[in-house]
Nucleic acid binder design. Structure first.
Lengths: 219, 219
DNA sequence: ACCTGAACACCGTTCAAGT
DNA sequence: ACCTGAACACCGTTCAAGT
């Protein structure tokens, strides 16, 4: 086998030995430091919030020197950006899973997807905050792409609703953005403490009902 | 006059001399440091973002030693909380102003208020982020109160819509939260860079249209 | 290619001391 | 009552040196 070429070409994100699990846990010095840092960062943000995250702490917890992370993230902001991006990937996966497990009924799919979104907001409030924080975002920001990819099950759902005559015609992305905003706003009201868990369920239900009614075809 | 008693009772937020403007600009050492810090913090957050805000910098810019802010804000978080609260006060004032200047038509008032909200989001994106950031918020958090107070013109608007038969019956706060979430979500999609300025107007318009349709009485 | 460890400038927080 | 300034522990970033 000529796995040499492959390893050199894409050596950052873990090598074959790691994937097969043949490398001991202390082999951070080769291959998977980037992933380990992100994983630990995510856990820390969940437990301590964004302010509890320090590069030096991270390096300590993962067992490397404080200068090591620099090889994988140019600075703290680069790590936060990567963390946000991986957050969108996870959110997208959970939305897609909820979408698929919900059967084929439009309303059921919509409610299941929204519930998955809000579950993410509840479990990883600080991460969701980071994902929607206002940094200098260019138009072709990878985060923009990741966010739209994550929400793509919702856009697909809009398309289904249109095919079935439940939703009005029009650009599915334009209509989907209204749904996106509504769900994200609901999540934000909860993570920021404006509403309690008890009100969240009611608000989420209302938001979806209003959206569906609002997007009804005008007959 | 016995203004001694009054001054002692409420000496933090500037004294009579300040209000009348009889105190020179270098009199920070007496009375208005807290307000000066908040004002400078708001400007810095607007120009540099939240990460550009440092207590020591603030103290420097205001012309006071780095230990001085502690007299008015126990720690950095306390200053951020106060900043968020003052942000809600400003947002509330701007919503109320837009509400009043919009005449008496329900739709006009609704669009004007939403536009004012989004104007705030555009001008002070980082501040809005801070206002909705996920810290440890109790149920009786002053921020919760400030947010609801800020949005109260919207709740009043819901009430008007119900009186005029444009909106369905029900708890105005419950219905208003759907509108709140929708507008805040729209703002978040913009401040986080998910949509561009060009799309913002379209999304805002759609969000309001869908809300009004969604909250229509079911005849 | 990846990691270490010293060095630097900066920060938040505390606290005795000043007025 | 309010502010100063030294002190402390910690942080992000840089960079020569190691393997």
């Amino acid at each position: 086998m000529d796995n040499n070429v492959d390893a050199d070409h894409n050596a950052v994100n873990g090598n074959i030995l790691d994937r097969v699990g043949l490398v001991s846990e202390k082999s951070y010095h080769h291959g998977n430091l980037r992933a380990a840092l992100l994983e630990q960062a995510k856990a820390t943000v969940r437990e301590q919030g964004l302010d509890g995250l320090s590069l030096r702490d991270l390096a300590r917890q993962v067992g490397v020197s404080h200068g090591a992370p620099r090889r994988h993230f140019q600075d703290r902001q680069a790590l936060l950006d990567a963390l946000a991006e991986s957050g969108f990937e996870q959110l997208g996966a959970e939305l897609a899973a909820a979408f698929e497990q919900a059967g084929s009924d439009f309303g059921t799919r919509l409610r299941a997807s929204a519930a998955a979104y809000l579950r993410f907001a509840i479990n990883d409030a600080a991460l969701l905050d980071l994902m929607f924080s206002s940094k200098g975002h260019d138009a072709d920001d990878p985060l923009h792409t990741a966010a739209m990819a994550a929400f793509s099950p919702m856009f697909e759902l809009i398309h289904q609703g249109q095919r079935e005559g439940i939703l009005e015609a029009g650009d599915p992305e334009r209509i989907g953005l209204v749904l996106f905003a509504s769900i994200q706003g609901t999540a934000a009201l909860f993570t920021s403490g404006m509403i309690e868990s008890a009100q969240l369920e009611q608000l989420a239900s209302d938001a979806i009902t209003y959206f569906v009614r609002g997007a009804l075809p005008i007959p």
